[in-house]
Design a protein around this nucleic acid. Structure first.
Length: 1047
DNA sequence: GTCTGAGAACTTTTT
DNA sequence: GTTCTCAGAC
């Protein structure tokens, strides 16, 4: 079988910091020049690159691809005859995963391979749900390595994955900085699907052979080329048939695998340990003897790759395992020529001689490996000797360290001088290899001194409480005294005023679990009411954790879903048509606009106004009322209900029908309402109606966090409740388990009435950033996130004790949240995050019905109602085909991507709807938001409005846009209700933070097409003395360049 | 009625 | 910068 070289790791021009001419043609050309016959496509998740591949490549039928003949033929003709060998492509890509696992932030790069465009498409489609795959050819995803492997395996039957450059400290499976101690640990239960690992430029197989856990992996070497010139600088040699399967088989079994060509690892920038500035270069043993400290400056040394090998090594000598292949080391021909000519390897002289070499001698691999030595004379008198020494491994190595490139030479300086003067060659002095002697293994620095933990410890005082408290309630065992006292009140109406981070959800869930378990209250008699679907989901999840599997869970609803459920169950009694359904706001608006001839904006205004009128019971002017009535008629004719109707119909129905009311007032014996401060009058009435003689009512909330007054929330609800339930017991939870003391202190400044009690450590000072504009503000956020995730701080030594304080906590993307007052402020952050490759999730609820394609589907679904899942799926498939036919050629309204997107959403909804009715299915579509479909495995930074952040918490929170203009919307400086609500909103925002709180405002902001001067929000003055302020730094690089170094 | 251009107003927060 | 409105011209 003929041997061939493969370069299995390259990039396209769509990856960051790559050459602009990295297209398929240049990849083929470059490979041919180097003598590479199989080259990776790279970047296979990038849509435009995949498109290019589909246009220019054809499948050979063996899982590999080749340039179409009409492209390849003229291309190859431009090459010297010795290089004219066909080049195959293998579909591949590199994925960077960044996530938190254990107590470390992990950053691992992976290589994936697919044998068809289908598999690559599926793979990309799945990753698109996890994060952003269009901002970079090598996407950064907040995804566990194991999950990435799973997605790879699901994408195609023979798709495979290998960890990339496994020893690089910052981004690899075994990296000292952010990796694991073994490949198995990295990929968890799926690790058995890994059969190959890439060694990377700064390690060679010999280093790997010291680590027995790597014995089972076949090693591959590749160039990781960012430009055509770098292709094939490392490569893997095969002797199998040319094909995807044979290649995979070779790596799995060794059959057809020959070995690798490597750089001399010493050439890498971080091979040895040391300090560049102090001119100290050490081998790992020397470093250990010095306790990792620099003998010159006393600071921790920068640890190199060789050191990490020592740490994980469990063999004293490098013993080739059974999987080992042949290994040869090389120096790129341009470097050799540079040395011989006494010029730089990128000089024109070298380039000329290089071209000449290819013409006369053949491809670079051939020259370096097997072109007969005597032919070298034609190029340079010393090339023969140079290549002889290279092939014999007799080279001079100076290891790189602390960012300084290593130097590999073939001739000593003096020797070179003599030789060029025509002197005789003399034997090369034996090069001293870097120490391979055994070194005492040291353990990794422990992370035990972390300043805090994710789950708060109870203060001592409460531990005592627990000891003497009624011991018999295991369900309540982790509650503090106040929480427990509240939880145990079950015979009277209860009102709990709970400050931020006081553990109210914990109290609530444990209480319910306790009731169900200990008091034997039937779960279906317990009702928990929330405002949002998200809160509902969270409560469900947390209750589920508390209750044993066998126990049925309590009923958990949002107000609206409860109302819908009630209307469904008793539609007749509520006076509704049996086939009523919720109309999604888009459809309603559309119908309303058609009916009324109003503009989009006016229609929005009218609908909003009607909603307020309806909720408050007020009456508008005559004209309004006429329009409103026709809207009501429109809904009636279509059997539509909007969100407001749900509650109003239920309340009116119960109030007007005694037996119906009796039924529902006895339906639940325990009724708990969360976030009570945001309740509106209809919700209040519903609660009242559901509370019968034997219903125990519990409400939980925080008046300081009331932020929905504008929407009709009734700020007097707590007072009113006390009037309606004179018996009610009121409890306060003021301990703040969530936030560091400085954050609690800031919150107390804003709301001095109800001071929270800080229980955690002091924490960092709150930082206030004075951004010059919104782009600068976004840049600040990006930079802070990177800093906290330990992105690129090359000077932080792995075992140093002086690591940045950010190293105390490991961060995943989900630990960060960026909050703003208005949705439009998200734009600057989205842009900056995309540029930096930080995955984010914007939780602005965009209904999927906003999409034309979804609307097109809905129209057709309505025409063909189905009642079973199977039929529904068939209909969806048919519609897809129909829409594809309707959208051909120039006239197409919907792109294939739009259609596929809509189809995949609707399919998921159909599957979730199961055998439910047609109207239920349509309702689910109407209510679905884009965010509902994000793959939960994806770890992302959250972007959301301050309102949306209610009830959430994050390790690090950025409260942005703190300008008066953002908070004083009607420019009425003396509207006390509004000012108070905005202040509460700010309070909600800053109390979301657990560990780090960053505030920022912009001096000017681009609004309405021009920069507008902004003024600092008034309430920031309250915090003045407790903030550390930071101002924009002068930036040395332009944006784009600066971005390249990150992650 | 329909077209055009100038000028005004504008982007809250959501089940 | 965009969208909408209104007045005035056709």
């Amino acid at each position: 079988m003929k041997r061939f070289w493969a370069d299995l790791h390259v990039h396209s021009r769509f990856a960051r910091a790559t050459s602009r001419n990295l297209d398929l043609e240049h990849l083929a050309l470059g490979s041919a020049e180097k003598g590479i016959q199989l080259v990776a496509t790279g970047d296979c998740t990038y849509p435009a690159w995949r498109q290019e591949m589909k246009e220019r490549l054809y499948a050979e039928g063996n899982g590999l691809f080749r340039l179409k003949p009409e492209i390849e033929r003229p291309l190859m003709a431009t090459l010297p005859s010795g290089c004219q060998k066909e080049v195959r492509f293998i579909i591949s890509g590199e994925i960077s995963t960044i996530y938190k696992k254990g107590d470390k932030t992990r950053k691992v790069h992976h290589l994936v391979y697919h044998s068809s465009f289908d598999a690559a498409d599926r793979f990309a489609e799945k990753l698109a749900k996890i994060g952003n795959i269009v901002s970079d050819g090598r996407p950064i995803l907040g995804l566990d390595s194991r999950d990435l492997l799973e997605i790879t395996l699901e994408s195609g039957k023979d798709s495979w994955l290998a960890p990339a450059h496994i020893w690089t400290p910052w981004f690899s499976a075994l990296g000292s900085k952010s990796g694991f101690d073994s490949i198995e640990e990295c990929y968890g239960d799926l690790a058995s699907h890994i059969f190959a690992a890439e060694t990377g430029l700064s390690s060679d197989p010999e280093m790997n052979w010291r680590v027995s856990s790597l014995d089972r992996y076949r090693l591959i070497s590749s160039s990781d080329a960012h430009s055509p010139a770098k292709l094939g600088r490392e490569a893997t040699l095969f002797s199998c048939e040319m094909g995807f399967q044979p290649l995979r088989h070779a790596l799995e079994t060794g059959e057809g695998y020959v070995g690798t060509v490597e750089f001399f690892p010493e050439e890498g920038k971080y091979h040895a340990d040391g300090h560049r500035n102090c001119h100290i270069r050490l081998n790992p043993k020397e470093t250990l003897a010095l306790d990792g400290l620099c003998p010159v400056c006393g600071k921790p040394l920068t640890i190199g790759v060789a050191h990490r090998v020592e740490m994980l090594a469990d063999r004293e000598e490098a013993i080739p395992p059974a999987t080992a292949g042949e290994v040869s080391s090389l120096i790129p021909l341009p470097e050799i020529l540079g040395e011989l000519l006494g010029v730089g390897s990128t000089s024109r002289k070298v380039a000329e001689r290089y071209t000449e070499s290819l013409r006369v001698l053949g491809s670079e691999m051939a020259i370096l490996h097997h072109v007969p030595l005597e032919e070298m004379q034609a190029i340079h008198p010393l090339l023969e000797e140079a290549i002889r020494r290279l092939r014999a491994g007799k080279v001079i190595r100076q290891a790189g360290y602390d960012g300084e490139y290593g130097v590999i030479r073939l001739f000593e300086k003096e020797e070179m001088e003599k030789l060029t003067k025509g002197g005789l060659l003399f034997p090369v002095t034996e090069m001293v290899k870097p120490s391979r002697r055994p070194i005492t293994k040291t353990s990794l620095p422990s992370d035990d001194n972390r300043a805090f933990q994710a789950s708060p410890n109870l203060p001592n005082v409460d531990r005592e409480d627990l000891a003497r408290d009624i011991p018999n309630y295991p369900m309540l065992s982790t509650l503090d005294s106040d929480q427990k006292a509240a939880a145990l009140i079950t015979d009277k109406a209860l009102m709990v005023l709970a400050g931020p981070g006081s553990g109210k959800t914990k109290m609530l869930t444990q209480r319910i679990a306790h009731l169900i378990q200990k008091k034997a209250i039937p779960a279906e008699k317990c009702l928990l009411l929330t405002f949002t679907r998200r809160a509902t989901d969270e409560l469900k999840a947390r209750v589920k954790q508390l209750l044993p599997e066998t126990e049925s869970p309590p009923i958990i609803h949002s107000f609206h879903s409860l109302a819908l459920d009630m209307l469904k169950k008793d539609s007749k009694a509520f006076g509704l048509a049996a086939d009523f359904r919720i109309v999604d706001p888009q459809s309603l608006k559309k119908a309303f606009m058609e009916m009324s001839n109003l503009s989009s904006k006016r229609a929005d205004e009218a609908l909003e106004r009607f909603s307020l009128l309806k909720k408050s019971g007020e009456v508008g002017d005559l004209e309004e009322e006429i329009l409103r009535q026709s809207l009501e008629n429109l809904k009636q004719d279509n059997h539509w209900l909007d969100f407001d109707d749900l509650l109003i119909k239920v309340v009116n129905g119960l109030e007007n029908n005694a037996s119906l009311r009796e039924k529902w007032a006895t339906a639940f014996s325990f009724l708990s309402v969360d976030e009570f401060q945001d309740i509106d009058i209809w919700q209040y009435r519903l609660v009242w109606l559901l509370t019968g003689r034997n219903t125990q009512l519990t409400v939980i909330g925080d008046p300081d966090q009331a932020i929905y007054h504008f929407r009709g929330a009734d700020s007097e609800c707590f007072t009113r409740l006390q009037q309606d339930f004179p018996e009610i017991v009121c409890r306060r939870l003021n301990r703040n388990y969530r936030s560091m003391a400085d954050i609690v202190a800031a919150a107390n400044r804003i709301m001095p009435e109800n001071k929270g009690q800080a229980l955690r450590g002091q924490g960092d000072k709150i930082l206030l950033y004075l951004a010059s504009d919104e782009a600068d503000e976004a840049r600040f956020v990006v930079q802070k996130i990177e800093e906290l995730m330990g992105g690129h701080d090359m000077l932080t030594a792995q075992n140093g004790k002086n690591t940045a304080k950010s190293q105390e906590t490991a961060f995943g993307f989900r630990d960060f949240s960026v909050l703003y007052r208005h949705n439009f402020q998200a734009k600057a952050f989205e842009k900056a995050f995309n540029q930096a490759g930080i995955p984010f999730r914007k939780t602005a609820p965009i209904p999927i019905t906003c999409h034309l394609a979804v609307k097109a589907f809905i129209e057709k679904i309505e025409q063909s109602p189905q009642e079973t899942l199977q039929d529904r799926l068939i209909v969806l498939k048919n519609i897809t085909t129909e829409l594809a036919q309707e959208n051909q050629g120039e006239e197409a309204v919907l792109s294939p991507a739009d259609r596929e997107q809509a189809y995949s959403w609707l399919k998921i909804i159909a599957e979730k709807s199961g055998q439910q009715s047609h109207t239920f299915f349509l309702e689910q579509i109407a209510l679905a938001n884009e965010v509902d479909f994000h793959d939960q495995r994806g770890d992302r930074v959250s972007l959301m409005t301050m309102h949306a952040s209610k009830g959430l918490e994050f390790s690090a929170v950025f409260v942005t846009g703190l300008e008066e203009e953002n908070f004083n919307l009607h420019h009425q400086p003396d509207n006390p209700t509004e000012i108070a609500e905005e202040k509460r909103l700010f309070y909600v925002a800053l109390t979301r933070a657990r560990d780090y709180l960053f505030l920022s405002y912009a001096k000017k902001r681009f609004i309405y097409g021009e920069y507008q001067k902004q003024t600092t929000a008034a309430f920031l003055n309250l915090l003045k003395d407790m903030l550390v302020t930071e101002t924009p730094k002068k930036r040395l690089f332009n944006d784009r360049k600066a971005q390249y170094s990150l992650f």
